[in-house]
Design a protein around this nucleic acid. Structure first.
Length: 646
DNA sequence: AGCACGCCGACT
DNA sequence: GTCGGCGTGCTC
């Protein structure tokens, strides 16, 4: 414990004007340590705030009388110097508050949990045997993956082993290798399903004391317990969702982010950091490796490889399953086809179902669907204006998405049929349809509500929404990739990236020799994907983004607040920085407006500083009403902007 | 956020 | 004369 007279404290406050360090005197009898939580009086009333001790010193710059620290909340040094340094860097990058970031990185205290931890008996670290290089990985690549200080985009191999995707197994072997050398490894995955799969695999090779899992649905005290475990001076393997990227482990050797293009890896709380960015900063700070791994790279990863900031490593991909694009254009002379499935896909699925499970991947539920003719598949259009027809409830008249004209009796201009079907509809409807198409076959439904991690190696139709696909023991015998058109035609910047990731994931779950059928799409994307050329597709997409000046070729900042404040700030920033431009304003709720700034990477740090200063200034001005808010690099704002612009 | 300081209207 | 309105400004 340090006995210096001045402690520098960062209050745990979300107020921008309090997001800075304050000096306090340390009374006799109070022991201060870096990273502990303290209570300090702030403001005229001396209201007690908790905060972190971020520095201790002999004197202060402040010319006024220092207030004294009220009390040390606990001796646990919950904020490590490394995390503080990383937090500063991420907060600056995101134009956000340091305390805001630490709210994500340091969980709330739980007294009982902490008492138990403080009086724990220390466990000894028994390193496991260093694992061997998995099949299908070149020795040089294995070496790169298992030493610290590298930046790698890793293209997983396909196939399922022991009920777990082989790529996941490979990654955990890499993590175990770091661990065996006395270094911690953090594995960040998008969601609960991936955690369950990895945990199952990890527990077979590493002891329970060595693993810390930040699983789904953790209570605050459970989260705190795991945080404390990570603080111990011994290596650990940490597994979890985006929360795991903040694990304050010592001896960090590896941070791996799996499927880093997944939108669930962006934090929904200020300052909205992405796990990939946090991983990069922490790795730089500690000398650890960053590995962005998966079956299909994120567009950011493609960019990093292109600019030679990351090296690329591929497992053996010769086992890529065959993909057959079978166009949806069901011809009238084909007769009725069950559940709108092309006959080739239908008969292949029927065959595969004799021996084992078949995966049917559908677009996520809750998506507002367009309508198609149930008999010929022609897109249903409004008779008044030609706009897309939709149906908000399950039944009732169809309405136009553009002019809201209601069509009570629709007739298809192609085949005169009066029956309409939702295209790219959610899993509920598809389960029903497919159940009828494959009579006598058990149907297993997997989506956000029906969480299934694995299915047995028995004949069954597994209908899963994109992102909720269970893993089949031994792999699926075939996969039907439905709704490709709807997935690809979403008005979203990451439609291609996300769609390819979903398809590649489905391929990874197939058993050796099984095939995938792309049923609702033809054209260049279908052809490229079928030939295994996903990567060139993404590179082309990246080139487009460069010429269109869209992320990740540029960085963006979303500004929200009262019109006058936002307008003034935009004018100011665009004048000061010649290479920043504004996409204009769109209205959000009430009187608030939103504006999006685009800027090259090299100017972004200076702009971020400027924006943050504006947020603090706005908070300090006593003006009532909505405050100015800044959000960096949230590409989804562009999707909303496209809808709301005028 | 809190809280105090400050400078203008209707009350014992 | 003074009690109290909430605009403005600061917090080690």
């Amino acid at each position: 414990m340090l006995k210096r007279p001045v402690a520098r404290v960062l209050p745990e406050s979300r107020l921008p004007q309090l997001d800075r360090e304050f000096d306090f005197s340390v009374p006799d009898g109070i022991d201060i340590a870096l990273g502990v939580r303290v209570k300090v009086p702030i403001g005229r009333g001396g209201t007690l705030h908790t905060g972190f001790v971020v520095d201790v010193a002999d004197d202060t710059e402040y010319d006024g009388e220092l207030s004294a620290i009220d009390q040390v909340v606990s001796p646990a040094q919950v904020l490590t110097p490394e995390m503080l340094a990383s937090a500063r860097q991420v907060a600056r990058r995101q134009a956000g508050g340091l305390a805001d970031f630490l709210r994500l990185a340091v969980p709330q205290r739980a007294v009982r949990v902490e008492k138990a931890w403080l009086s724990r008996e220390s466990t000894t670290f028994q390193p496991p045997a260093t694992p061997e290089c998995p099949d299908g990985l070149r020795a040089a690549d294995w070496e790169a993956l298992t030493e610290p200080g590298r930046r790698i985009v890793w293209h997983f191999r396909y196939g399922v082993r022991d009920g777990v995707p082989a790529g996941y197994d490979d990654l955990l072997t890499v993590a175990t290798s770091h661990f065996a050398e006395g270094r911690s490894a953090i594995v960040v995955v998008p969601d609960w399903r991936d955690i369950a799969l990895c945990e199952q695999s990890l527990r077979q090779s590493v002891g329970d004391d060595d693993i810390v899992v930040f699983g789904p649905d953790l209570t605050p005290s459970e989260t705190y317990a795991r945080h404390l475990l990570c603080l111990e001076d011994r290596p650990r393997i940490v597994l979890g969702s985006r929360r795991a990227v903040y694990a304050p482990v010592s001896h960090l050797g590896l941070i791996a982010v799996v499927s880093d293009g997944d939108e669930s890896l962006r934090e929904q709380l200020a300052p909205y950091p992405h796990s990939r960015d946090v991983a990069l900063v922490r790795a730089e700070q500690t000398g650890a490796s960053v590995v962005l791994a998966g079956f299909s790279p994120s567009i950011e990863a493609v960019r990093y490889v292109d600019m030679e900031y990351f090296e690329s490593v591929s497992s053996d991909r010769h086992t890529r399953p065959r993909v057959l694009p079978t166009s949806l254009s069901i011809r009238a002379d084909d007769g009725p086809t069950p559940a709108r499935l092309p006959s080739q896909a239908y008969s292949a699925a029927t065959d595969a179902l004799r021996n084992g499970p078949v995966l049917v991947q559908v677009f996520r539920a809750g998506f507002s669907p367009g309508l198609v003719c149930a008999d010929c598949g022609e897109r249903a259009r409004c008779v008044e204006c030609g706009g897309p027809l939709r149906r908000d409830s399950g039944s009732g008249p169809a309405g136009c998405g553009w002019c809201h004209h209601l069509t009570s009796r629709y007739q298809c201009p192609q085949c005169q049929s009066t029956r309409l079907l939702a295209s790219g509809h959610g899993v509920g409807r598809t389960v029903h349809e497919l159940g009828k198409a494959f009579p006598g076959v058990p149907v297993i439904q997997a989506d956000g509500q029906h969480r299934i991690v694995t299915v047995p190696a028995k004949p069954a139709l597994v209908v899963a929404t994109r992102g909720a696909e269970p893993v089949a023991e031994g792999g699926y015998h075939a996969a039907l990739l439905l709704d490709g058109q709807a997935m690809l035609q979403r008005a979203s910047l990451d439609a291609l990236e996300d769609t390819l990731a979903g398809w590649e994931w489905a391929l990874a779950l197939l058993r050796d020799g099984a095939q995938a059928f792309l049923t609702d799409l033809d054209g260049p994307v279908a052809t490229s994907f079928a030939s295994g050329a996903s990567y060139p597709l993404l590179r082309t997409e990246l080139q487009d983004r460069v010429s269109l000046r869209l992320p990740p070729a540029v960085r963006i900042a979303v500004l929200e607040g009262p019109r006058s404040v936002v307008d003034a700030l935009v004018t100011d920033v665009c004048t000061r920085f010649a290479d920043v431009d504004s996409l204009g304003t769109s209205r959000v709720e009430g009187t608030a407006v939103r504006n999006i700034l685009r800027m090259p990477y090299k100017t972004a740090p200076a702009v971020a500083e400027e924006l943050r200063a504006a947020v603090v200034r706005d908070a300090l001005s006593g003006r009532r009403g909505a405050r100015l808010r800044v959000k960096m690099d949230d590409a989804r704002a562009l999707d909303e902007f496209a809808e709301g612009a005028h």
